[in-house]
Every structure is written in structure tokens, then in C-alpha cells.
Nucleic acid binder design. Structure first.
Ligand SMILES: [Zn+2]
Ligand SMILES: [Zn+2]
Ligand SMILES: [Zn+2]
Ligand SMILES: [Zn+2]
Lengths: 164, 164
DNA sequence: ATCAAAATGTTATAACATAACGATCCAGTC
DNA sequence: GACTGGATCGTTATGTTATAACATTTTGAT
């Protein structure tokens, strides 16, 4: 059996209850700005990768601020540093992390059909990557592991349609 | 011990001898155009990820053609389809594959310091990824596995400088 | 109140990528 | 040789993502 620490969509905590920004701040002695908080909460609600310009469009109305590109990227940079948001390289987009974390081998499964994204932490993959790196004498910094494909929901929907 | 099918920089074959475009074409019944061939050969010589606009700049002089962005991206698309070139998502760049291939779990180690890139094929990582995907009921399409860090050469250079 | 650090505003631009449509090249066939 | 279909390329324009540079405002501590 595998070490899947996170088996739910990335915007939910393990018990299935969405975290609030306030809870996270309390836990970590963190004070989010309005922009940072609204981006984080939007990504939690959304549950799938969203581009920086998509965030701008979505949040433009709901915010007193103007939300120019530099502002969005700065807030995202902060949230990434705190381990609250991850960048999905294959989509040039950003997703809320399943839980605050840092510098581990998180693996993202991203559905080509519905866009959903699931974050897992796989000790086995991490160990194997470390092993291969050691063989090469390579010191690993950031790990990007993204698997594109079709999620279970979309697969069963596919199967249902094919059966008709 | 690990299954590292490729232990040399990505622009060399395992025996350390760079392939020529002609050899690849002969092997695969493939006819490369001038643009396709010159891009592939440049990436072989270079041995590290290069962006599309970098390719344009580098090849502008050496070519009778104009080499506009669409032309470069079309050639890169072709080379990727043939498994001769891989896109490095973390760099928005392209690198010659260690060998022609398709749809396997290739892993890229990319040095933040010198930009060098090494492609390996790790059966263990592939198996583990497949295992985790099966657990989620996820059907995998493209796999993107990119590890950023410091290569062995740059590490020893670092150590040498620190020793002074 | 004063100050320093953090966050944001603003303008402009860099860097990456594709849409759309016409022209050309080239291998195989008549 | 002329024809033809498919691949490649030219060209123009535009879309998308990301950052540089510098001014200003907000925030929280002293
Ligand atoms: Zn298991
Ligand atoms: Zn799906
Ligand atoms: Zn070889
Ligand atoms: Zn290096």
C-alpha cells in the first residue's frame, strides 16, 4: 500500500472540510493581506489550477483594489513561499495546496477533461527520485511532478456514454 | 541498483557519440526539413534547454530562412511528436532527447547554475507513478517530471571555491 | 509621531505562444 | 512534363503570461 497522505481534491482538508484563511493564519501566526486572502480563498473554492490573469478577471469585481498583474504575481509569490499555493507548470496556473507544506515531492494529477487537480504526497516517488539524484550526484531543489490524464470521474462518465 | 538507461548529457548517445540528423532519419525513414534539422542539430550541440525565441536568435544568421515564431513552434511540434525533442515545462524551453522515444516516464534533472539538463528513464519512478494513479483511478497521459537543483559538476566547483 | 518594512499602484515592456490565411515546396501519379 | 494532395513555410497580427522599475500607501512597532 502506498503512502497517500491526501486523497481528496486539493481544496479540501483531509476531513473534507475546507479550511478558512483565518484558521491557517491562526495556525501559523500569519497575517494575509486582502489580495492574498481573496486569491487563496478563491483557489480553495475553485479547486483547480487557475492562471494569474484568470484570477484577475474573477476577482476584479469582488475587490476594492485594481488587481494589476504585478499585484497578483506578488501575492501568488507570497502564497507559494508559505506553501499555501503551488504553481502548476504544465498549465501556467496556480492551485491551492491540499495543506500548507514546503519542499517535498508533491505529485499533481491533473485531468485534461475537467481540469480538476489532485495533490498527493508520495514517499515512494520521493525516495526513488532521491535515489536517482544520488546516482547522478545531483542535489535536488524544486521537484515538479505533474501527471496529465483523465480523472476517475471523467473516466466513468466516458464509460457511461460509450455504453449508450 | 537503478535502471538508468541514460547517464550522459541529453545531447549524446550512451556511447558518448552525438547522433547526426542523417542517422536518425535513416533509422526512422524520416525526412527532416531544413528548419527542423537545424533546430535539432543546434539542440544537440547545445545540450541544454533553449527557448523558442532563443532558437530564433541563434539560428537567424545560419539559415536562409526568416525563422518567425510560428515556423519555430511548428518545427518544435514536429520534433516533439517524433520524440526527438522534449519540452521542459519549468523553463518554457526545449531540449534534444537523449534518444528518440515516446510516452514514457522520462525524468529531467536540470541544473539551476549551469543550465545543463540530463534525461533519464526510471522504471521505478514510472512504476510508482502508475501505482499511485491506479489508486486514484486516474488514467495517465503525459508525464512531466522535472527536478531542479545543482548538478555534480557545479557542486564540485562550489566545494572547490568554498575550500579556498 | 516617527520610522522601517511590506504591500500595492502604475506604466511599460519582456517573454512566450498561436490564429488565420496565403504561398511554396515536393513526392507520387497521370 | 503537368497535375495534385499533403506538408511546410511566410506573413501579419494578436493573444497570453510574466516582470522591470520606480512611486506611493499601508501597517505595525517603537
Ligand atoms: Zn500502495
Ligand atoms: Zn476529470
Ligand atoms: Zn545513441
Ligand atoms: Zn551545473
Amino acid at each position: 500500500m502506498n503512502t497517500l497522505l491526501q486523497r481528496k481534491p486539493a481544496h479540501q482538508c483531509p476531513e473534507g472540510r475546507p479550511l478558512s484563511a483565518e484558521e491557517v493564519c491562526a495556525e501559523r501566526g500569519l497575517q494575509l493581506s486582502e489580495v492574498q486572502r481573496s486569491i487563496l480563498e478563491y483557489l480553495w473554492r475553485r479547486g483547480q489550477p487557475v492562471g494569474a490573469y484568470g484570477l484577475m478577471r474573477e476577482l476584479k469585481g469582488t475587490l476594492t483594489r485594481q488587481l494589476s498583474p504585478p499585484t497578483v504575481y506578488r501575492a501568488l509569490e507570497f502564497l507559494q513561499k508559505e506553501g499555501l499555493v503551488a504553481r502548476i507548470e504544465t498549465k501556467n496556473a496556480f492551485v491551492a495546496c491540499a495543506r500548507p507544506h514546503r519542499n517535498r515531492a508533491y505529485v499533481y494529477f491533473i485531468c485534461d477533461t475537467c481540469g480538476a487537480s489532485v495533490e498527493i504526497e508520495s514517499a515512494e516517488i520521493e525516495a526513488q527520485v532521491a535515489h536517482d539524484a544520488a546516482f547522478l550526484g545531483f542535489r535536488i531543489g524544486r521537484r515538479v511532478i505533474e501527471l496529465e490524464g483523465t480523472c476517475a470521474d471523467c473516466l466513468s462518465r466516458e464509460a457511461a456514454n460509450a455504453g449508450c
